[in-house]
Amino acid sequence: MSALEEMAGACERAMGPDRELDADIHIAVLVPADARRVDRLGGCVGYVASDGLYRSARDALRYTASIDAAMTLLDQYGVLMHLSDIGADGLPYARVGRPDLFEEPNIFTGISSGIAKDATPTSGLALALCAAALRARGAE
C-alpha cells in the first residue's frame, strides 16, 4: 500500500479535524521526495530535506477541516465530481475523477466514516475529499 493510500485511509478514519494529519499531508504532497518526517518536542511536526535543515509543517493548510484547503490537493491530479454529506449511506462522500487516466481506476472515492463529537459537517466533507484527492494523486 502506498503512503498516499495509507494517508487516505487515515483521513477516512479520522474523528474530526486533525492538525497532525494536516502536517503529514503537507509533507507528503508539498515537500521534496527526499525529505523525512521529524517529530519535535511539544508536538511540532516538520521535515528535514537533503540540505539538513529542519522546517516546520505548523503552517500546513487545514486540509482536514476546510473544503477549500482539501480542494488544493486536487491541483492537476483530478477534478471534483461529487461531494455530499449523505452520499455514502448517510456519511460524507467524495468522488474525484482523473480524466488523464485512460485505464481503470480513473475515479477515486473517499468516505468519512469516523465522524465523532469533534467533527463538523464541513470537516466530514473535507476528510472525504482529502481521502479521494490523495488516492487520485497516488494513481499512476
Rank of each mutant, 00 (worst) to 15 (best):
R137S: 05
F108L: 12
G9A: 12
D51H: 08
H82R: 15
G43I: 12
H82Q: 12
D34A: 12
L53Y: 08
E6L: 14
D85L: 10
T122H: 08
M7G: 01
P92H: 09
A49N: 14
L41N: 07
R95S: 08
S66K: 11
F108M: 07
Y47A: 06
S112N: 12
D118A: 14
S84G: 09
L21C: 09
R13I: 06
C11S: 13
C44W: 01
P92Q: 05
S56Y: 03
D100I: 02
L125N: 00
A94E: 06
A133H: 03
L53F: 06
T122E: 15
Y93G: 01
A60E: 11
S84F: 09
A57E: 02
R55C: 12
I25T: 12
D118L: 02
S84T: 03
P99M: 09
C44M: 06
L53I: 15
G43P: 07
P99V: 04
D22E: 04
I27W: 02
T109N: 15
M81I: 05
Y63W: 08
C130Y: 03
C130I: 11
P99L: 13
G46H: 00
M81S: 13
A131V: 02
G90V: 10
M1Q: 08
R98Y: 11
P121Y: 07
H26V: 01
C130Q: 07
A136G: 09
A69Y: 09
D39I: 04
S56F: 04
E140W: 08
K117H: 10
D85I: 07
D75N: 06
H82N: 04
C130S: 13
Y93A: 08
T109S: 07
E6R: 13
G110N: 14
D100W: 06
P92I: 01
D51N: 15
D39L: 10
G110Y: 05
G110P: 07
I111M: 03
V79I: 03
D89E: 15
L127K: 12
I25Q: 07
A28C: 00
R98P: 14
R58L: 07
N106Q: 12
S84Y: 11
D51E: 13
R62K: 15
T120M: 09
L83S: 00
A28Y: 11
A94W: 02
M71A: 06
D51Q: 06
R62A: 15
S123P: 09
Y77A: 13
Q76P: 00
G87W: 14
M1P: 04
R58S: 12
L41F: 15
L91S: 15
L41C: 11
A136P: 10
L21R: 00
T120S: 15
E12N: 02
A65Q: 08
A70E: 04
A14S: 15
L91G: 02
T120W: 03
G124I: 10
L80I: 02
A139V: 00
A139F: 00
R62G: 13
G124F: 08
I25H: 05
L21W: 00
Y63D: 03
I67G: 01
A128N: 09
M15Y: 07
V96S: 10
E12S: 09
